[in-house]
Simulated assay, not measured.
Amino acid sequence: MSVVLVMVLMLVSVAFYIVTERKGLGMLQLRQGPNKVGLKGIIQPIADGVKLFTKEIIFPYSSIKFLYILGPMVCFICAYLLWVLFPCLCSPLEISLGLLLFVCISSFSVYGVFMVGWSCDSRYGFLGAMRAIAQSISYEVFLSTCLFCPLVLVGSYSLIDCRFLSFPSVFLGQEILVLWIICILAETNRAPFDFVEGESELVAGYMVEFGGVGFALLALAEYSNMVFMSMITCILFFSFLLEKQILGSIMFCLYTVLLSYFMVWVRGVVPRFRYDLLMMLCWKVLLPLSICFLILFISLFGDFDLIC
């Protein structure tokens, strides 16, 4: 029951997060954000949800209808299935290999992106999907090596252990945190690495032919991944600030929200990177650097059995 409650709360939170991002970008770029329904647009997420979920589903003429419906559902299910791993002591599910499950689900979600881009029979959508898949697969390797660095100190793959046992984060340098932030921005297709939705060349990327329910599911999945990545960052790199039992949960939520809106701030102030430089940055700079850090962490603070 608690898992279902977490997922429902995240659906509501993500809906408000989307509108708040639009309002925040309007403030950063000195233009008016959404301010239509309710006081300062506070009920705008409900109006957007009702509008999208009540629109008629229109299939492109030469699309594959089954995959056209299945693709957004796979993306949505993969995004919200991750919240089964939410580190709550009252949860009936205790997954000892939670972070490995997180890596597996993240890897499987690229199949949903592929179905979305291929099923609509649009060159723009297919090109955007291929870019998203290449970017995700490349940075998943980098993400795994960055993820194992703090896990060497924890000695466990459980998010509950990482959240409540408070591993010695003082050993985590700023370099690992910077690498991890770059990785989650690229993995979630956010600015400055949002080549999937490069408006000047791809016209909204792989979701260009989707509207109504399909677009809503894809948007909810994308922003849910952003919040989940912020939660993982808070657990792995800021748990030493959350040791107090009374304020621990409040501070945990506060840091997660602040990290989520940090991604919005990056989108508003950082220009878009170049795609070939993005791939070169991953394979020639970030991945070798993260492997060196992982070897250093294993030699100093851990053993090779956890990684094996």
Rank of each mutant, 00 (worst) to 15 (best):
V4D: 07
V6H: 03
M7Q: 14
V8E: 03
M10H: 06
M10C: 08
V12F: 07
V12G: 15
S13I: 14
V19G: 02
V19E: 07
G26T: 11
M27S: 13
L39N: 15
Q44R: 06
Q44L: 08
I46R: 00
I46L: 10
K55E: 05
I58Y: 14
S62A: 07
L67W: 09
L70Y: 13
G71F: 05
G71K: 07
M73N: 09
V74D: 09
V74Q: 10
Y80G: 11
Y80V: 07
L81N: 05
L85P: 01
L100H: 15
S106L: 12
S107A: 15
V110L: 09
Y111K: 02
G112E: 06
M115S: 15
W118P: 06
S122E: 08
R123M: 13
G125L: 03
A129Y: 11
A132I: 12
I137S: 10
Y139L: 00
C146D: 01
C149A: 10
P150N: 03
L151M: 06
G155H: 07
Y157Q: 05
Y157C: 15
L165V: 04
F167R: 02
S169N: 12
V170G: 13
V170K: 08
F171A: 08
L177K: 15
L179R: 03
L185I: 03
T188R: 01
A191K: 12
P192N: 05
D194H: 02
G198I: 00
S200K: 04
V203N: 03
A204V: 03
V208Y: 10
V208T: 14
F210I: 01
G211D: 04
V213N: 12
V213W: 14
V213Q: 08
G214F: 02
G214Y: 04
L217A: 10
L218V: 12
L220T: 01
L220P: 02
L220N: 01
A221V: 03
M229K: 07
M229W: 10
T233R: 00
C234M: 14
F237L: 01
F237M: 00
F238V: 02
E243Q: 14
I246R: 12
M251N: 06
F252P: 03
L254T: 10
Y255R: 00
R267Y: 00
D276N: 01
L278H: 07
C282D: 14
L286E: 01
L287G: 00
F297A: 10
S299Q: 13
S299G: 12
D305G: 07
D305Q: 09
